[in-house]
Design a protein around this nucleic acid. Sequence first.
DNA 1: ATTAGCACTCCTCTCTACGGAGTGCTAAGA
DNA 2: TCTTAGCACTCCGTAGAGAGGAGTGCTAAT
Lengths: 347, 347
Amino acid sequence: MKQLVRGERARRVLEAIILEYISGGVPVGSRALAKRYGLNVSPATIRNVMADLEELGLLYQPHTSAGRIPTDLGLRVYIDSILKIKQLSSADRERIRRSYKGGVARVEGLLKETSKVLSSFSKQAGVVLTPRLSLTVFKRIEFVRLRAKMVMTILVSQAGIVHNTIFEIDGDISQEELDKYSRYLNDMLQDLTLHQVKARLLDEMKKEKVLFDRLLSKALELSQKALQENLEDSEIYIEGRTNLLDNPEFADVEQMRRIFNAFEEKSKIIDLLDKSMSAGGVNIFIGSESELLDMGSVSFITSPYTSGDDILGTLGVIGPTRMDYSRIIPLVDYTAKLLSKMLGEAL
Amino acid sequence: MKQLVRGERARRVLEAIILEYISGGVPVGSRALAKRYGLNVSPATIRNVMADLEELGLLYQPHTSAGRIPTDLGLRVYIDSILKIKQLSSADRERIRRSYKGGVARVEGLLKETSKVLSSFSKQAGVVLTPRLSLTVFKRIEFVRLRAKMVMTILVSQAGIVHNTIFEIDGDISQEELDKYSRYLNDMLQDLTLHQVKARLLDEMKKEKVLFDRLLSKALELSQKALQENLEDSEIYIEGRTNLLDNPEFADVEQMRRIFNAFEEKSKIIDLLDKSMSAGGVNIFIGSESELLDMGSVSFITSPYTSGDDILGTLGVIGPTRMDYSRIIPLVDYTAKLLSKMLGEAL
DNA sequence: ATTAGCACTCCTCTCTACGGAGTGCTAAGA
DNA sequence: TCTTAGCACTCCGTAGAGAGGAGTGCTAAT
């Protein structure tokens, strides 16, 4: 990719255009570039370079007599081979840390808070994907008899995530009996991932058919039901949507509607975040690169977060392709690490 | 209020204007009224009536040569003393019932689903306020030792609402010990509202000071911690925000921003819904009537929902003041009753 | 009390004109 | 061969003028 932009000067022009465009939001012309950035060449020369960059598909001209705008590809090249990502200043880190008020009362709350932090520091929308249950480690299961034939299962993972399911059972079961089940299961399933738990349960059920142990049988059946669903589901917390309204490129209502529709549907955003979960470190999707979402010129900057050694989910920032990547990339990176640390402490 | 609009004809004109405005969205003039509604009078007469209604503050003229638009007060009069609220047709009821897919796997899910139902049937935004914990009836408490000194408390209410808190404790406590605590508490607190639970705990703590029972002491202390916060907090589920974008009156970006800001902040909306919780039946806030929210010309139609005899929360529809009240009022009413029934069955 | 007629107001849409920004090209200079 | 000054050209955005239309309020007649 780096080879696409041969000369040092071309690279500097591309950078200058992108910086200017990011801060200004309007097509940038040759004169402004020559003046403001110390390129020491005339506008005419810059125009020649620009024409070359346009031919390479890195720049784009909205109309004949307008300045240039970087294309998604242009931004990609810039991010991959020009931008030097700096660390967040320690003052910024401090400010981020402080903006988490109070302790970790609930994991949910922590995630939502994180999403808010991302949004307020990036001035864009912050997003956090909740942990996939199947990836978490089993800690505890409880059954609660809500009333005749109605049972609630509560599942707690090591990272402190709580999940409950209500379902109907055939015959009524007393709370004492349910407590026996859960004691039994809690012993058996310690330290397995929920994925493994599921397998283990199936396994035990086969054995049990031979043993005819009624206690086991019921316990296994109930826990199966609880695990049947939702193991692969994730939710997302999106905060700061309205920050996007401040970006002039989203001023027209049609564009807006598309973005907010995507926010409302969520499933596509979840898919995208999901995809970036396995890839370690900061991921960047620029505009059309995330084709499935027809959100127009929107970029995602994401990073997975962990608890201990387990990848739990993904967090990130959603903003216009015209975003201050140099600030937001380290922000997302640091926030992911910070959240991982906090989840590690809570666990 | 009824006296404001003296004549029968004036009332009919007001009604006609509102109906026309609701369906069309543009100021309505005297000619269109005379033609379309069987008023059997000439436009000139209608103009006279309109002038009267305007003087009363029920109508409003955007500019000299425009037709009339009902004011918030006009809509209020219409809703209170002209509109006859019909029942939802049984076909509609059936369709609503069917749109709840599957059973009640989780209360949360059920509430979110309800919010979606409200939004899709109203073509506006649907909103559901989650139950205030303090109003719910205690069912069960569990303690889970996450790791040294870290304990999670899980609280289950009779209606199937689960709430968890993670906190740090001074000395480490084994899971076995924690189980003892919860067994003790579960016996003690059965069938109290969480509000009462809190009082009861304080009570017991006083007694315990005399008895010096270490088990009691610890158990009480932990549960106190868990209940310390969040009892009064509510969340809301808002679905179908983008439906509001289809309303022409929200076409301009500034108006939009205000509404979405309110959605983002939530706390003010929660306050409003909270207020309408105690008042039974369907509540309506028209535009400026809910002053605290500067959402512009937005109306709320809300109704509390229950589980058994307890009021749990509020649900409703948010839309432009220009909304089809005759359809949406019974929709909200029915949905609230349906949700109450479903929660009653699950509990 | 109602209504036909009419002058008047104000909005909205379209068309045109014009200044400005930025380009590409050409030809001259280093 | 690369750079640059100069220039004609293109296209956007805005402002202003004018026409058409919808709707009103008033007056006078029924």
